[in-house]
Design a protein around this nucleic acid. Structure first.
Lengths: 181, 181
DNA sequence: CGCTACATGTAAGGTGTTACATGATTCC
DNA sequence: GGAATCATGTAACACCTTACATGTAGCG
């Protein structure tokens, strides 16, 4: 119920794809889930320790090698399915760009234009990155069972980025029309 | 610099439009900024007290009436402009829906379809609400100076909602194609 | 042999939510 | 007079980030 379990979801989910170290969990969350999820270092290790205590994950060679990967146990996979079935809770919205634009009168139309153009550029970069990710996804042979689901998240990002670009163009036109420089 | 100042930004911004009580600040943030911002009760009152200590806001009739509205001082407006000029920082992404879909193999295609359809419905409701808001915006005479900027945030929400609807349709098609029931 | 990347963890501090507590005013 | 709404605040707790601390392994 608390948001903490969403960290558990992300960590268990990562280990459900294949076993890996805590360090790799962090890199995967950053690089693969990065466009819609984030976890910090200080969350991942305590969560792994907690999951190990509860028997939901285990390490290959108990103790010795410092780099023994964690893997999800059967109970862990069951727990993951249970967590995934809970209603999705998204973070409270906090869009710093829109907050600035809402009070844009104080900021001035020109500074607003700059903010919008910066957001547009960023969205174009993201669109290119996600396109590359999508193309490389179809070449991965080992993920075929997960691929359709991963694809859903990539195209969500692409739709979002294209919406940002279209919005930016509309927004700049509105400023030009209503507040000519 | 800390995120705390973004709460200051929202509160000062609300008071920059017109004076109001803390209670009204909260209602306005929820109802007007709601689709891209949120602040909780426990943030707003301490922030108002802090702003008052710093001379950035003041109450009309000092002390007596419990319902004396706060208003931004000249220093408060200056501070607001300063805060607005700081680079926008958005919350770390945490999309519970996409997290579930990414690990959708564990959840099953049918439960994923339900999640996507629910998101689509929600986006349609939001699109309708924002459309109504946009139409009522042009009828407000007292906001004409702020109206162009408010319009930018409304159409941002509309673009986002339309993107969610288009994505949902694509996503359902992908599931039907790659994982026929 | 030194630098970078891998690997694990802790502690402090900041942010934000929730629940609780209190009272005035207004409307029925 | 009672219920809903307006109004203000606090305290406990959950959450998350950052910086620090430590050590190993591999590579040039």
């Amino acid at each position: 119920m608390p948001t903490r379990s969403q960290t558990q979801t992300a960590v268990l989910g990562a280990l459900s794809i294949h076993p890996m170290t805590g360090y790799a969990v962090r890199e995967n969350i950053r690089d693969v889930l990065g466009h819609f999820w984030s976890e910090s270092f200080g969350q991942i290790y305590p969560t792994l320790a907690e999951l190990e205590r509860e028997g939901l994950v285990e390490r290959q060679e108990p103790e010795h090698p410092r780099s023994a990967p964690f893997s999800a146990t059967a109970a862990g996979l069951e727990k993951l399915r249970e967590l995934l079935r809970e209603p999705p809770q998204s973070a409270k919205p906090r869009n710093g760009l829109l907050l600035r634009l809402f009070f844009g009168r104080q900021l001035g139309a020109n500074e607003c234009r700059e903010l919008i153009e910066a957001a547009r550029s960023q969205a174009e970069v993201q669109l290119a990155e996600l396109g590359a990710e999508r193309r490389s996804l179809v070449e991965q042979p080992d993920l075929d069972k997960d691929a359709p689901f991963i694809l859903l998240t990539i195209i969500a990002g692409e739709h979002g980025a294209r919406a940002t670009i279209a919005w930016a163009d509309d927004a700049l036109a509105i400023l030009d029309e209503m507040l000519p420089a």
